[in-house]
Amino acid sequence: MSNITDVIETYLKKVIQNTNHKAIEIKRSEIADRFECVPSQINYVINTRFTVERGYLVESKRGGGGYIRITRITNEDKAKLIDEIIEMIQPSVTQQATIDILERLLEEEIITKREARIMVSAIDRSTLAFQLPVRDEIRSRIMTAMLTALKY
C-alpha cells in the first residue's frame, strides 16, 4: 500500500504528463483538500520529490492568488543532459542527491534498474567509508566517471 506522499507524487506527475506544456500551476490548499491532508504535506512532497536532481523546476508565489508552478525539465539530447548533471554534481554531491539523479536517469530510460542498483551500491555511504566532505567529493568523482561512460 502506498503512503500519502507517494499518492500525491503520482497524482502530480500524471497531471504534468497530461499537459502539453510540461508545467502545472497548483494551489497547495486545493491539493491538500483533494487528498485530505495538511498543506505542509504538499510542501513535503514538492520539496522532496520535485527537485532539480529529479528533473523539475519549482516556483512559488505567496499570497491570496498564490500558486506553485512545477515544470518538468526536458532534454532531448541525452548527452547534453548527462553533461548538465555532471556539472551539477561537481565538486561534491550528497547521497540523496545522487539517488534522485539516478531516479531521473531511470525515468528518462538512460539507465536500467540493474545499472541503477550497481551505481547506488558504488556511491553508498557504507561503501565510501570516509568522513565528510571527502566522501561527497569522492562520490562526485565516481558518479562523473560513470556518467561519462554512459555517454559513449
Rank of each mutant, 00 (worst) to 15 (best):
residue 1 M to T: 09
residue 3 N to F: 04
residue 5 T to Q: 12
residue 8 I to C: 04
residue 10 T to N: 12
residue 10 T to D: 13
residue 12 L to F: 02
residue 13 K to P: 06
residue 14 K to N: 15
residue 14 K to T: 11
residue 16 I to Q: 08
residue 16 I to G: 03
residue 21 H to C: 11
residue 27 K to R: 14
residue 28 R to A: 06
residue 29 S to I: 12
residue 29 S to A: 13
residue 31 I to E: 06
residue 31 I to L: 08
residue 31 I to Q: 08
residue 33 D to P: 03
residue 34 R to P: 02
residue 34 R to Q: 13
residue 35 F to C: 04
residue 42 I to Y: 03
residue 42 I to R: 05
residue 42 I to E: 09
residue 43 N to P: 07
residue 44 Y to P: 04
residue 44 Y to C: 07
residue 45 V to S: 10
residue 45 V to E: 09
residue 45 V to C: 07
residue 47 N to I: 06
residue 47 N to Q: 15
residue 49 R to P: 06
residue 51 T to S: 12
residue 52 V to F: 02
residue 55 G to R: 03
residue 56 Y to G: 09
residue 57 L to K: 14
residue 59 E to F: 08
residue 59 E to P: 00
residue 61 K to M: 13
residue 61 K to R: 15
residue 63 G to T: 04
residue 64 G to T: 05
residue 64 G to A: 13
residue 66 G to E: 08
residue 66 G to C: 08
residue 71 T to V: 08
residue 72 R to C: 11
residue 73 I to N: 09
residue 74 T to P: 01
residue 74 T to N: 13
residue 75 N to P: 04
residue 77 D to M: 06
residue 78 K to N: 14
residue 78 K to D: 13
residue 78 K to T: 13
residue 78 K to S: 15
residue 86 I to S: 01
residue 86 I to D: 04
residue 88 M to P: 03
residue 90 Q to G: 02
residue 90 Q to C: 01
residue 93 V to K: 01
residue 94 T to S: 15
residue 96 Q to N: 14
residue 99 I to L: 11
residue 100 D to P: 00
residue 102 L to E: 05
residue 103 E to G: 08
residue 103 E to I: 01
residue 104 R to G: 08
residue 104 R to D: 07
residue 105 L to C: 05
residue 107 E to D: 15
residue 108 E to V: 06
residue 112 T to E: 05
residue 116 A to F: 00
residue 116 A to L: 10
residue 116 A to N: 05
residue 117 R to D: 14
residue 117 R to W: 02
residue 119 M to E: 05
residue 119 M to K: 03
residue 122 A to F: 01
residue 124 D to I: 01
residue 125 R to S: 12
residue 126 S to E: 13
residue 126 S to L: 06
residue 128 L to F: 06
residue 133 P to E: 05
residue 134 V to G: 00
residue 139 R to N: 05
residue 141 R to G: 00
residue 143 M to I: 03
residue 147 L to M: 11
residue 147 L to G: 04
residue 147 L to F: 04
residue 148 T to D: 08
residue 148 T to L: 02
residue 150 L to M: 11
residue 152 Y to S: 14
residue 152 Y to V: 11
residue 152 Y to M: 12
